[in-house]
């Protein structure tokens, strides 16, 4: 898998708190057997109710970094949510914090989510709004977010960071490889052998 060390691109600001997965991709678009075509439905209901939604704003088209507030991606485990964002064009997310399942789903798709302070979110969103063409860089090697003259430290759990930067975010391949370990673990779990009862 590709090593993901640094993402640079223009950004789209959405500095709201508690954006849930139902808002990112409404449930009716989960009626599908592939993830294709989800990009155009990202934030669909919010966009319909707000003609000025950043995802429809001409200035932010082509953005690859999303700047959000606290607890982004809370709610359901639907991988359709990161898939919709990725297919819209997002390659990295910056927020004050993320919901965990959403975070894991992003990592599994090679999309880094980094946390910055509330103040950094505010400054980044303001900078991007003032000048939508400014490039934003998410640097996983130095754990830094840069935007023009601004630079902020960011955090990411070390496991996720390592998997992305070493190109080992395809867990499936690694997990399957360790078949011997899996079988050995299964063997020592009493319920896997019906508690060794002779019944």
């Amino acid at each position: 898998m590709q090593k993901i060390e640094q993402i640079t691109g223009t950004a789209v600001p959405l500095p709201l708190d508690d954006i849930d997965t139902d808002r990112i991709i409404p449930a009716r678009y989960l009626r599908c057997v592939t993830f294709e075509g989800l990009g155009e439905h990202a934030f669909e209901d919010d966009r319909k109710q707000n003609s000025k939604h950043p995802f429809d704003d001409a200035r932010y088209q082509g953005a690859s970094v999303l700047v959000a507030g606290r607890n982004f991606g809370c709610g359901s485990s639907r991988e359709h949510a990161p898939q919709a964002l990725i297919r819209w064009g997002i390659k990295a997310l910056i927020a004050e914090s993320f919901a965990e399942i959403f975070f894991g789903n992003c990592t599994a798709n090679g999309t880094p989510c980094v946390c910055v302070s509330e103040d950094a979110v505010r400054q980044l969103a303001a900078a991007v709004t003032a000048n939508p063409q400014t490039a934003v860089t998410v640097d996983l090697a130095t754990l830094q977010v840069r935007c023009g003259a601004l630079a902020f430290p960011c955090t990411m759990p070390e496991g996720a960071r390592k998997s992305l930067t070493s190109g080992q975010w395809d867990f499936l391949a690694q997990l399957v490889e360790n078949e011997a370990g899996i079988k050995a673990t299964a063997k020592r779990l009493p319920y896997m052998s019906n508690f060794s009862a002779v019944s």
């Binding site: 070390e158 496991g159 998997s163 070493s166 360790n178 370990g181 899996i182 673990t185």
Partner: peptide, 11 residues
């Protein structure tokens, strides 16, 4: 716990 992955996460 089956083991520890390269990333440090648990399998």
């Amino acid at each position: 716990t089956v083991g520890t992955l390269a990333s440090g996460q648990t399998q």
